[in-house]
Nucleic acid binder design. Structure first.
Length: 174
DNA sequence: CGTCTGATTGTTGAA
DNA sequence: TTCAACAATCAGACG
């Protein structure tokens, strides 16, 4: 451990064959630059292209719950500075929650997903535009650089009441 | 100074 | 359908 930054590769090499049970996933950014030195120039015509505005993945219900949990956890454990501590505690607590309790978190996560899809469309367009070799000709023709929600558009403005309470207290179905 | 790590689970995107 | 990687966090640690 320690400085073995070479993590990128190890992260899923053999584990790939093994079931996903071992979620030893903590690693991130695998494909991007496991080697430290070596000239990053590489240029590679079209590969390893950084995303100008790649939308980040929407936080799962667990993360949504974690966000709140972190505050609570840190509030009672200000001394704890290890992210892993919150992760473990959060994970444990998360499993302790019932469907009904996770419902609000999932609802939020679901909403995130919707927004994410929207961002994806915008991002997708950018890629398309970029895909084109020469954009100078068409110029403004395709998509504007950044429109986003700027104007009102058809914003439905969520009026969600979160009244999807279908819970029949059937948590312990097992 | 910058990038990476740890640890959790869920979700998403690609094959 | 299945795999693999990443999403936040926060401070420490290494280059």
């Amino acid at each position: 451990m320690k400085s073995a930054k070479g993590k990128g590769a190890a992260r899923t090499s053999k584990e790939a064959l093994k079931p996903v049970d071992d979620r030893k996933v903590g690693k991130r950014k695998a494909p991007a630059r496991p080697e430290k030195s070596s000239a990053p120039k590489a240029k590679k015509e079209k590969k390893a292209k950084k995303d100008p505005n790649k939308p980040k993945r929407p936080p799962s219900a667990f993360f949504v719950f974690l966000e709140e949990f972190r505050k609570t956890f840190k509030a009672e454990n200000p001394n704890v500075k290890a992210v892993s501590a919150v992760g473990k505690a959060g994970g444990e607590k998360w499993k302790s929650l019932s469907n009904a309790e996770k419902a609000p978190y999932e609802a939020k996560a679901a909403k995130r997903k919707v927004e994410y899809e929207k961002l994806m469309k915008a991002y997708d367009k950018k890629q398309a535009s970029s895909a084109d070799d020469d954009e100078s000709d068409k110029s403004k023709s395709e998509v504007n650089d950044e429109d986003e929600e700027a104007s009102g558009e058809e914003d439905h403005q969520e009026e969600e009441d979160e009244e999807e309470e279908e819970e029949e207290d059937d948590e312990d179905d097992d």
